[in-house]
């Protein structure tokens, strides 16, 4: 039985889903103990019901208007104050742009360990967290050996489960001073061209693309997916696209979540630049093409037929999802 505190986050006036996931983790760790949540900013009260539904027995509100936007100094002081009040044994939050920014500073103040970016937790005699290392090429299990346990949980990994609790609210007064960074403005993400080395999704073309013109359907697919276009050396050498798009031994090394290889035979030099991609899709006319050996999914066919169909299909699926979650 543990006493656990979860820092819940909001974004665009809504509770973040990751906070509900973290509450679910908190339930597992509490193991019959106490699940506390805290939420910062002037409209924290609004989220009482939702937090309670996912297991928060007590909810601590720190309502200072300075906390409507995240700053390391403001949130640090608020969280330290809540921790002082609640005296939790475990502090959890999402591995988000707030969580991973804030908790290291709080950990220093509490002389505590912090286990970051956890994707799983086992609760027995000890609390053992699992986290990916080397960009997911390996995993480690880690435990805190000394002091308060702090961890950040990777979003979209653990399913949030409803677990209705009382959700009694408590207001905490925090005196916030010396906020040394100021958020002047927040500019919403605009969709623009995605840089190849940053792209989560890459649509790459090879010799099979046949011309500069041939890259158009690839770009359209990339645009729909919010990804970037890349190319094999053969395509660059043939002058179909700019050398800056080259992926491979003498070009860029990329590790996107999804790599769609179109008309790429899969020369070993190209694989050196992309084989660590999480999921590889190969589209090639030649069923013997080497790329199929490393692909997770393959379609044997003409890329000029397959790619436009794929673009349409994604558009369709995205449009349907909009309706459901809208």
């Amino acid at each position: 039985m543990k006493k656990v505190l979860v820092l819940a986050e909001t974004k665009n006036g809504k509770l973040r889903n990751v906070s509900l996931e973290v509450l679910t983790v908190a339930g597992k760790i509490a193991n019959g103990g106490e699940i506390n949540a805290c939420i910062f900013g002037s409209d924290g009260e609004k989220f009482r019901e939702e937090l309670a539904k996912f297991g928060a027995q007590k909810i601590y509100l720190v309502e200072n208007a300075e906390l409507n936007r995240y700053t390391p100094d403001g949130f640090k002081q608020a969280l330290l104050k809540v921790i002082e009040e609640v005296q939790p044994e475990v502090v959890l939050t999402g591995h988000t742009s707030v969580g991973k920014d804030l908790l290291p500073r709080v950990a220093v103040r509490l002389n505590a360990a912090l286990i970051s970016d956890c994707i799983d937790v086992e609760v027995g005699e000890k609390i053992i967290f699992t986290r990916p290392i080397y960009s997911g090429k390996a995993f480690q299990k880690k435990e805190v050996t000394n002091g308060i346990v702090m961890a950040t949980i990777r979003p979209n990994n653990i399913e949030a489960k409803e677990n209705q609790a009382a959700g009694e609210t408590f207001k905490i007064l925090a005196e916030l001073k010396d906020l040394r960074t100021m958020v002047k403005d927040i500019v919403k993400k605009t969709s623009g061209k995605v840089d190849l080395s940053e792209a989560k999704i890459i649509v790459a073309g090879g010799r099979g693309v046949k011309s500069a013109e041939g890259f158009k359907p690839l770009q359209e697919l990339a645009d729909v997916l919010g990804g970037a276009v890349g190319a094999s050396r053969a395509a660059c050498d043939a002058g179909y696209c700019d050398y800056s798009l080259q992926i491979g031994q003498t070009g860029k090394v990329v590790t996107p979540d999804l790599y769609i290889a179109c008309g790429i035979s899969g020369a070993i030099q190209h694989l050196a630049g992309m084989s660590s991609s999480k999921v590889i899709v190969a589209i090639n006319k030649d069923p013997e093409a080497n790329i199929f050996h490393i692909a997770d999914y393959g379609i044997v066919g003409d890329l000029f037929e397959v790619v436009p169909l794929l673009t349409e299909e994604f558009k369709k699926v995205f449009a349907e999802n909009q309706v459901v979650t809208g």
Partner: peptide, 21 residues
């Protein structure tokens, strides 16, 4: 003094071989 400790390291399960649709 380390405050945490690595209990275990392991590699992810091997990807199942690819699928030609």
């Amino acid at each position: 003094q380390p405050l945490s400790k690595i209990v275990e390291c392991y590699l992810p399960k091997k990807k199942p071989s690819g699928r030609i649709l």
